[in-house]
């Protein structure tokens, strides 16, 4: 099976993260540090339930919020909840939002853009008109409205909502790439050999734009994470069952930031720890995206 794909990769090296691009990426120190940082952080966050830390909603009686100390590395909030475990559990929400919602958005964008670019002409014009229309719908209003009205706290639904308006950019990028690809000789050859349109798009054209898509996907992640942070910040975020079985607001980095901002003057650590971690994550992701772009840049290819 694998050997079947080999020759194609050699003919169109822009298809995937080839070994050459990987070699170039490895030379990029900033990108490698980012990968290491993101890996460690995700491990910590996703394995948080297995770590010997307090539960994210465990309340302890405290006179006042405890500043960072040996017992509470990041301090506690006014209810005596350990900020360190809240930040890790919050990271679980924020990171999975970033990964899952942006993969959904990019997948939709790629399929839409590829279809539009492949058929070109009238279909393309109408499909792109729809993208313009979606662009001029104020996305945040719609998301807030949907959240307020339907009150759905199913996590998949929330992912779908966050990606609802984020596929537009990748659709545009992929469309313009496909538009230029379809004029190439190998596509004519594919048509001549009687392969169906869907086959040409899915098996031959999309693999050719995957490099750009990978870069674009990486750059979509921070946008979606900021969007989630904004929604949690204004109090329209995620809910889940706590360890006592009651529905409560899950901490995400956005909602932690919101609580931190509210009491910044008296308890600055409640803002500083989540803020630093959030910003470092966004920074690492965008360094990784830039690194990927440089590694895959066809202008640098021999």
């Amino acid at each position: 099976m694998f050997s079947l794909f080999r020759p194609k990769q050699q003919i169109y090296p822009s298809g995937s993260l080839s070994s050459e691009a990987w070699r170039r990426l490895r030379k990029n120190k900033l990108a490698m540090i980012s990968i290491v940082f993101l890996t460690i952080l995700s491990l910590l966050c996703f394995l948080a339930p297995l770590l010997p830390i307090r539960a994210w909603d465990a309340i302890e009686f405290v006179e006042e919020p405890i500043p960072p100390s040996a017992a509470y590395w990041f301090g506690t909030d006014g209810l005596g909840r350990d900020l360190f475990s809240r930040v890790l559990y919050g990271g679980r929400v924020s990171l999975s939002v970033g990964i899952i919602a942006s993969s959904m958005a990019v997948t939709i964008g790629v399929l839409y853009g590829a279809t539009s670019g492949f058929f070109a002409g009238k279909i393309d014009r109408w499909m792109m008109r729809f993208v313009d229309f979606m662009y001029s719908i104020p996305s945040y209003f719609v998301i807030i409205m949907i959240q307020v009205v339907f009150q759905v706290h199913n996590i998949l639904f929330l992912f779908a909502m966050l990606s609802l308006f984020q596929w537009l950019g990748s659709a545009r990028v992929v469309r313009s790439q496909i538009l230029s690809l379809r004029e190439r000789d190998f596509v004519t050859a594919l048509h001549a050999s009687g392969i169906s349109s869907a086959g040409v798009i899915l098996r031959h054209m999309i693999p050719n734009v995957l490099g750009i898509v990978a870069v674009y996907a990486t750059l979509t992640v921070p946008g979606i994470m900021l969007q989630e942070a904004f929604l949690s910040f204004i109090g329209i975020g995620f809910q889940a069952r706590g360890s006592d079985g009651v529905m409560k607001d899950i901490p995400s980095w956005g909602s932690l930031l919101g609580q931190g901002v509210a009491t910044f003057e008296t308890t600055p650590w409640l803002l500083i720890f989540p803020a630093v971690l959030f910003s470092m994550t966004l920074l690492a992701i965008s360094f990784l995206g830039d690194g990927l772009r440089d590694a895959l840049d066809p202008n640098l290819r021999k």
Partner: peptide, 10 residues
Amino acid sequence: ALGRSIPPMV
């Protein structure tokens, strides 16, 4: 890069 990573609410 830094400016893009600090959300306005922070």
